[in-house]
Each structure stands twice: as structure tokens, then as C-alpha cells.
Simulated assay, not measured.
Amino acid sequence: MAAESESADDDSFESSNPTPIGVKLGSTRTVLRYFENADSDELTTVRTLTCLALYEDAITGEEKALFGEQAAAEYPDRVQYMLRSGLPEDDERAELAGRFFRELLSANGVPSDSAVVYAIPTMDNDAGLENLTEVIESSNIGAHTMRAYPESLCGAIPAMGDGVEAVDDVFISVNMGSTNLEACAYRRGDQLVPFSTGSVTGNDVDRRIVANVEEETQGRVHVDLTTAREYKEEHGNVGNFEPFSDVIQQPGGGSHEYTIEDSVVDALDWYLDAAVNEVANEFLPELANDYMKVYQLSLNNDIAVTGGMACIPGLAEEFERRLCEELDRDVNVVVPDEPDLAAAEGARRIAEKLAGQ
């Protein structure tokens, strides 16, 4: 999918000074990156849960909306994550996603006179991509320019340099997200053999942590997916994990303290093995079969690893080690400073180029 909207007036196009904005509408979190104004050197990052809760005003009866963390905290019984599969699957979810995005933009005063680049997932889902296009085009930003690029390309840009050098290189990008594991080769910005699977995801890790905690505590403790995700994000560490304790309230009164030793580690171990298997034995053979020279060049270059799972300390390094072992050759993995923000940051840098800055 590629959405574009540019001014037909050449004079206004040249004289305007639009704000370059990078956007990632994620299944779990949405991220925006931009500078407040042309003279500012302070980068603004808007990061929020991609969710919406609708409620009725107690006085007027008017329908109102909350989004993000506030919606999840105040209305856990009705909050909706409309991009759980990575894309809005139907008209209802598309409408909710559009409402969420408009509320987010309004709350943060995001400038409409902007050059906007969206980082979008690589998925074989034409209906979902069409719905996402409607969400994007219904927003009030991107008056100057509006484009969409693959999330794996946008995420690789800050991993590969300080500018947009990745667009002129030959490399492999692996995006470790909540909803999908994506891998793709790029040849000077051209996307080759895009690969995506929903069988190895951050959400799967959360579900395994839930099951592991119940097993580790011999059925005494059952945590929900939100708690499991918090355990993963706050305590997950590959190679240097430290057991931690938590407390639950007992139904009849009192509390029960328990310690987690293996539940998180075992889930991450499964994820690493599964991710390496998908990249080494599914994606790379297809790339070698279709583009042998690109395969050879890209494995000699850095492999960019991005996405929320890459934020877990030690995970990217262990992914590199296991991938080397599986391929029986050396490969080098590079990770941006902020893997979960990388797609929005890369999109912002592309937007700068499009805006002529």
C-alpha cells in the first residue's frame, strides 16, 4: 500500500515549511515522531496504547472517547484494541481505528501542515491494507505529503546509520513485533521476498508466560495477558535473568506472594528458537532461490533487527548467536538504540527527505 497526497501548487509547495512526521500505527502501541517546529532541536515522541474506549457523558448523553493508557485503565471491561491483528480487519475496526487516530492527533496538537510517512506492516491482507488506507486518509495530517513504506524498511533505517543510508544498501531486516515476525531483503529500497508469520510473535510469548506461571506455581496463580506482558517487558532478560516476586490477593482475604524463576525465560527461549527457525529455514531459502546474489550480499552485510521484542536485553545478541549456529556461518545483527520506536523514527527521516529538509 502506498498513499500519497501532494499540493498541485508548485509555489506553495516550495514556500511551505511542513513538519516531517513519522507514524507507526501498531497493534499494541502507536508511535509518532516529529519536531515541534523547524527551529526546534527537541524531538517529540508520542507513544500510546492503540486502544479506544467509548462512553456516554453522564449529563449530556453525548458519546465520548478515551484512548491509550487512560482508556485501558478506566475501562478495562470495554476497551478495544482495533489493530490486534496488525490491520483493521473490517469496517467496524477501521472506524474505531480512525476515531482513535483522530483523538490522538487532536490531543497532541499534531500539525496538519506536515509531510507524513507511515510505517506499515508487511502482510498479505488486501482488505486490511485498504482499511488502513482509509484510516490514514481520513486524518487531518499530511496536507503537504503523505506516503507509506514497509515497517521493516523504516525500522532498519536508524539501525543502519544516522540518516537514511539503508535505502541505498542491500540488507536483510527482521521485525520482531507483537503481532507478526517479519523478514525482508532490501536492494536500494526495493522490497524483495517479503515474509511474514503470525505464529511467532510477542503476543505468543505473553500467552506462554500465562501458561508457564500457572504451571510453575502448580496452579495457585493465574495472571492475565496484560500482567504477562508487563513481566516480559520489565523482567525479561536473555542471559542475565533474575527471579522476581509478585503478590496476589486471595479470594477469602489475605495475600499470596510467589516467585517467578522459569516462566519468562522459558517463553523467551521458545521465541528465539522459533524466530531463528522461521528466518533460517523459511525466509532465507526463498530469498536464495529467487535472488542468490542478494542473498549472498545481504548475509555479508548487517542484519537489522527491530520491533518490541528486540527491546528485551540480550535477545538480539542471542538471536545472532543461534542464527549463526543454524546457518553454520557468521552473521552480524545490528539493533537501533530504541527498537520499539525505530519504525516511526525511520519514517520521520524519510519524511524529512520528502519535505526537502
Results as ranks from 00 to 15, higher is better:
Asn281Pro: 00
Ile21Thr: 09
Ser139Pro: 02
Asn131Cys: 13
Ile120Gln: 09
Ala58Pro: 15
Asn125Gly: 10
Gly163Leu: 14
Gly254Asp: 08
Glu352Val: 13
Val223Ala: 09
Tyr149Ile: 08
Glu14Ser: 09
Lys353Cys: 12
Glu338Asp: 14
Arg102Ser: 08
Asp57Cys: 06
Glu95Met: 05
Glu216Arg: 08
Ala310Leu: 06
Val135Ile: 03
Leu315Trp: 01
Cys324Gln: 15
Ala71Leu: 02
Thr122Val: 15
Val110Phe: 00
Gln250Thr: 13
Asp11Phe: 07
Asn140Glu: 15
Asp246Tyr: 04
Ala94Tyr: 06
Val174Trp: 00
Gln250Glu: 13
Leu323Thr: 05
Ser173Thr: 10
Thr201Gly: 05
Val305Met: 10
Ala342Gln: 01
Asn131Ser: 12
Ser263Lys: 09
Asp340Met: 07
Asp169Ile: 07
Gly356Val: 08
Leu105His: 02
Phe319Asn: 10
Glu74Pro: 00
Glu137Ile: 00
Glu352Ile: 10
Ala127Leu: 14
Ala288Glu: 15
Ser106Met: 03
Arg322His: 06
Asp266Trp: 09
Val223Gln: 08
Lys353Val: 10
Asp190Gly: 01
Met123Glu: 15
Ala94Gly: 13
Ser255Lys: 05
Arg99Gln: 10
Ala148Glu: 04
His235Ser: 10
Val279Asp: 06
Gly236Phe: 04
Glu165Cys: 13
Phe171Arg: 12
Pro158Tyr: 00
Asn140Cys: 07
Glu89Cys: 10
Phe195Asn: 12
Phe101Ile: 01
Glu282Cys: 02
Glu345Arg: 12
Ala310Cys: 04
Val46Trp: 01
Ile209Arg: 11
Phe195Ile: 14
Cys154Glu: 04
Thr217Ala: 09
Glu151Leu: 07
Ala97Gln: 01
Glu42Gly: 00
Glu230Tyr: 03
Asp269Phe: 06
Glu95Val: 03
Ser298Tyr: 05
Gly219His: 10
Asp302Ser: 14
Asp204Pro: 01
Gly236Lys: 02
Leu297Gly: 14
Val333Ala: 04
Tyr291Met: 04
Asp126Tyr: 13
Glu286Cys: 02
Leu105Glu: 00
Ala65Cys: 11
Ala288Phe: 14
Gly128Asn: 08
Arg47Lys: 12
Glu4Met: 11
Val331Glu: 01
Phe171Trp: 04
Val135Lys: 00
Asn37Ser: 15
Val238Pro: 11
Arg329Gln: 14
Pro150Phe: 11
Ala127Ile: 09
Ala342Gly: 06
Lys64Gly: 09
Leu153Thr: 04
Leu83Trp: 11
Gly177Leu: 08
Leu268Glu: 11
Asp168Thr: 12
Ala316Gln: 07
Thr145Glu: 14
Asp190Val: 06
Ser138Gln: 08
Leu25Arg: 07
Thr30Arg: 04
Ala275Pro: 07
Asn332Gln: 12
Ala2Cys: 06
His144Gly: 00
Ala267Ser: 13
Phe244His: 08
Gly161Lys: 06
Arg208Ile: 09
Val238Arg: 05
Ala156Pro: 02
Asp224Tyr: 01
Thr201Arg: 04
His256Gly: 02
Asp168Ile: 02
Glu56Trp: 00
Val213Gly: 12
Leu32Trp: 01
Ser85Gly: 05
